[in-house]
């Protein structure tokens, strides 16, 4: 009677061992699979040219250039502080994205908001805008500068719309128009995507996935 019992126990231990090995293999394979999927997603993203070179000023009054973004995955948007309509929504979406990136442990991400009304948006006004909205500026910079430089950066560099009606005065901020897209830039300084985030479409979710993929690919 002892031999069959021993045999039974042995088989049970072998079975448990096999299950354990399988679980270990799965545990090792899953992160690999996740990482390889992220790399594939990053590779599959299109390229839209290089991040433009620029020299502007951030909300603290310090010079800020494209060199400050080197090596980081960047999300950029285009706003102005007097904007009563879409810009508060864009800022709220950017804040949400920043929070989610932090929670996901994506530490190497930078966020930049370019003012499309740079004559009005001084560094002080940008700082006040950030304070009023309780923005976390530890990895989020709000940029302004000479109109000529901002236009060259936003229009020719990012290929995002900005301008104002030809006959509008400086006080007529409702005449300012601009692209409402988020732009994703990889760690090598290449523009990898334009995302529409203002409505209920899946633009923000796509951006989150692509952002995560670019960060993992850069690691």
């Amino acid at each position: 009677m002892a031999a069959p019992v021993l045999e039974h126990r042995r088989r049970r231990w072998v079975g448990l061992l096999v299950v354990g090995v399988l679980a270990l293999v799965a545990a090792l394979a899953l992160p690999l699979l996740r990482e390889s999927r992220a790399r594939l997603r990053a590779r599959g993203l299109p390229g839209f040219g290089a991040l433009p070179t620029f020299r502007l000023t951030d909300q603290t009054g310090r010079p800020f250039s494209d060199a400050d973004l080197r090596g980081a995955v960047v999300v950029a948007d285009f706003i102005f502080t007097r904007c009563p309509t879409v810009c508060p929504l864009l800022t709220a979406k950017m804040a949400r994205l920043q929070r989610q990136a932090r929670e996901a442990g994506l530490s190497s991400v930078r966020f930049v908001s370019f003012s499309v009304d740079p004559r009005y948006d001084t560094p002080e006004r940008l700082a006040a805008y950030a304070n009023t909205r309780h923005l976390d500026t530890s990895n989020w910079s709000l940029l302004t500068g000479p109109l000529e430089d901002v236009e060259a950066t936003v229009l020719e560099g990012f290929r995002v719309m900005m301008g104002r009606d030809a006959d509008a005065g400086d006080d007529d901020f409702l005449s300012i128009f601009h692209g409402e897209h988020f732009v994703l830039v990889d760690a090598d300084g290449r523009i990898r995507g334009y995302y529409r985030v203002v409505d209920d479409s899946d633009g923000l979710e796509s951006l989150q996935r692509d952002l995560e993929a670019l960060v993992h690919a850069a690691d």
Partner: peptide, 16 residues
């Protein structure tokens, strides 16, 4: 552009 609603026939790149 990514994230356009399904019924949009083309890119809306001008913005607001």
């Amino acid at each position: 552009l990514a994230g356009l609603p399904m019924d949009h026939p083309h890119v809306l790149g001008v913005g607001c």
